[in-house]
Lab assay of single mutants.
Amino acid sequence: MDSLVVLVLCLSCLLLLSLWRQSSGRGKLPPGPTPLPVIGNILQIGIKDISKSLTNLSKVYGPVFTLYFGLKPIVVLHGYEAVKEALIDLGEEFSGRGIFPLAERANRGFGIVFSNGKKWKEIRRFSLMTLRNFGMGKRSIEDRVQEEARCLVEELRKTKASPCDPTFILGCAPCNVICSIIFHKRFDYKDQQFLNLMEKLNENIKILSSPWIQICNNFSPIIDYFPGTHNKLLKNVAFMKSYILEKVKEHQESMDMNNPQDFIDCFLMKMEKEKHNQPSEFTIESLENTAVDLFGAGTETTSTTLRYALLLLLKHPEVTAKVQEEIERVIGRNRSPCMQDRSHMPYTDAVVHEVQRYIDLLPTSLPHAVTCDIKFRNYLIPKGTTILISLTSVLHDNKEFPNPEMFDPHHFLDEGGNFKKSKYFMPFSAGKRICVGEALAGMELFLFLTSILQNFNLKSLVDPKNLDTTPVVNGFASVPPFYQLCFIPV
């Protein structure tokens, strides 16, 4: 009986604490739906499609509103004006990374994606500088992407125009580009180590996009005490870190300090320079996690976009025909596509942009946080508050993009057929937390897609009208449904 009384008292205290925290903070924060004790607004949000729920709530509470995930307040920004004001106009104040408990377990605050403060700034600055020195957006990395595009075309030829699921092959190409940047090595598509790495990356994007992960991140005790797919994700990350550590040891034994070959060499050189400046942010643990982040951000996002792009091109054969006509006119058949071609191919450029806009790969991006107490639109948001960005509300804005739910390359073309930029184009987020590999991803999408369409016609196994382009999961990332196609050599 005594234990029951204690339990009831504990629960009562928890409920009172929950109510007090919510009521004391709500006077400062933007308005929002009334949260339930302990669980907050979790029942009012469709976990399978958070973005749709945010759109519905914005119609009631406006472009800036507050939700509670458990006891934790989260300020939501919906629509271009609110997102721009926060991420661009007040970029420094909104540059923090929001709480992501599962990532905390995986990387302990290291790396480039989930770190904060001085650690994040130094690692991000170093990573950007190193990638630029190796030619991100310049010639040397373009050579690597072109080489991988040629290998991709050869792998597709091996399908002999038979029906195939493109998931694996389209994942190999961007993964190999990242391998060449980090390890100075590309792998054969049949290499077992490479296959294991690909498998872990593919599993992780599916797990991260599941409703279960949303629950884990908002009720963090689940991570330590409950079984579930989150444990598989943590094991996959541990596998990748151990693999990278092996490569780091190989580099330490063979590195030429006067001739760095890749990202690992550059990081080890930085560690050597910083060894007298303790404590340094440049450690082996930081290198492991930064490399894992580059793999995660640079492989599955690009391969998922490529997979979605081919599905949309199957669905819209008239678009595919126009792209192939432009390829034939500008590039021809006797040389590989290059980035200089893009400025002469406005329709193809528009298609690449429209694919990214339409699929809305990361509907709410990753959570941000404010780095200080900030007054925002007459609300006071306390330091450390998590900020949720609705990228969907920007990419699918119906004023900027008429009929935003329709796939239409003319969203990025003017009346004369010239490519038209849009400030609403934010597939990689915006501001200080914009994806480090934005330029690389854009290069890969253009070169891989043009190389495929230069060499193959795409054949659907069903009537294009019957192809479903609805994402199968739409949590962290929008993942396309399973499909097969035939690559018919031109």
Rank of each mutant, 00 (worst) to 15 (best):
V248F: 06
T299I: 05
K206L: 05
P471K: 06
D414V: 03
N259I: 07
H316M: 05
S58F: 04
N277F: 08
Y308I: 02
N236W: 02
K48Q: 11
Q192K: 14
R433G: 00
M129C: 12
E285W: 04
P481L: 02
Y379V: 05
N116G: 09
L294C: 03
N217S: 15
R335L: 04
L152P: 00
G111R: 00
V292R: 03
F100A: 15
K270L: 07
P367G: 10
V352W: 02
T301D: 00
P402R: 13
Y424C: 11
D143H: 11
L366N: 05
L440V: 05
R342L: 12
H276N: 14
L208A: 15
F69T: 06
Q484D: 04
T305R: 00
L449E: 00
V479D: 08
H230W: 15
I141H: 03
L294H: 02
Y225L: 14
V60S: 12
S365L: 11
R144L: 13
S280Y: 07
I74R: 03
S303I: 02
E288G: 13
Y424T: 09
C266H: 14
I434E: 15
L36P: 02
Y243F: 14
S95H: 10
K28D: 13
T66I: 03
V248G: 03
R186N: 01
V479G: 13
E199L: 08
F126Y: 07
K200V: 11
T66R: 05
M255S: 11
L362R: 04
H78M: 13
A439G: 14
C216A: 15
I284P: 06
S422Y: 06
E147V: 08
F446L: 02
I331K: 02
L195T: 08
Q324I: 04
N259K: 10
S390D: 10
R105I: 11
P402S: 14
D256H: 10
E246V: 05
L311T: 01
L440P: 03
I452C: 02
E325L: 15
K119M: 10
K28S: 13
R26F: 10
H411R: 09
Y308D: 00
L131C: 10
L201N: 04
I389H: 03
D293V: 05
P464W: 05
K273L: 10
N466P: 01
G27P: 10
D89N: 11
L294P: 00
I39T: 05
L128M: 11
H344D: 15
E203F: 03
K121S: 13
R377P: 04
G298T: 00
C216L: 14
P35Q: 05
S127R: 01
F226A: 07
I213R: 13
F226C: 10
I327Q: 02
I223D: 06
C266R: 10
E300S: 11
E328R: 15
V177R: 00
L234E: 11
T304E: 05
K206D: 06
C372R: 15
K118T: 13
P30L: 02
D349L: 15
L485Y: 00
F263T: 04
E142V: 04
G91V: 02
R357Y: 02
F65M: 08
F126Q: 08
W120A: 14
F295T: 02
I74H: 07
N403Y: 08
K459D: 05
F226G: 05
P31Q: 07
V237M: 05
T470I: 06
A291L: 15
V351S: 03
Q324R: 11
Y347N: 01
V323K: 02
P35V: 05
I434D: 15
I244L: 09
P37N: 04
F448T: 01
N107E: 09
L362I: 15
V436N: 06
D89H: 09
D224N: 15
G109M: 06
E325Y: 10
P367V: 13
K399P: 07
Q44N: 10
E148H: 00
Q340P: 08
S365N: 14
G296M: 06
Q146G: 06
E203N: 05
G27F: 13
T385R: 02
R124G: 03
S209F: 08
L233A: 08
G431T: 03
C266Y: 14
K270G: 07
G332V: 05
G79L: 01
L77H: 01
N474S: 13
P337M: 04
S254H: 12
Y189L: 02
T386A: 06
G111N: 03
C435G: 00
F194C: 03
G96E: 14
Q324E: 05
F219I: 11
Y189P: 02
R329V: 11
A477N: 08
T159I: 04
L314F: 01
I207V: 07
K59Q: 15
C175A: 15
T283P: 05
